[in-house]
Amino acid sequence: MRPAYDTLRAMLTTINFVAGVLFCCLFWLLAGDAVTEMLRPRPVMEQKAYRPGTGGGGEPEEKVTNGIHDATGLIFAEGFEAVRGNCTACHSAKLITQNRATAAGWTEIIRWMQATQNLHDLGENEEIIVKYLATNYAPEDVGRRAGLDVESIEWYLLELE
């Protein structure tokens, strides 16, 4: 009688153990990111040095990841609020983030939008906006033609006959 009871207890222990391991695996699979995140020491500055107004808060549309404002894709830096407030009313921020220009170039684009696209007078915000754009979205010299960006190529195996 007694040995059978021991066997049953051993089996139950094993089943419990296996279930426990499975549960842990499942938990890790589903919530591992969050746990790792919790255990990792907080970086002192998650954003760039810039942090007034928006950007650090709990609202999902105000989240900033690695210096990029999640909702708009704009670099979160000085002048961000002015750019978001004045530029994204008409067009999406993608029109900004895909372009590069000098201060003179960005000013010219603003003049063009004022002359033809109903953009209002930006007043004292203009200087802030142009500075933000020329600093964060400045042109790079790529010569007469850039080579293929070999680093970013996604290599795949092509099966041939």
């Binding site: 895909q98 372009n99 590069r100 220009a101 790529v142 033609r145």
Partner: peptide, 12 residues
């Protein structure tokens, strides 16, 4: 357009 240098404004 995205290949011009200096860059040109507009959709890249």
């Amino acid at each position: 357009r995205s290949e011009f240098n200096p860059p040109a404004k507009g959709n890249q």
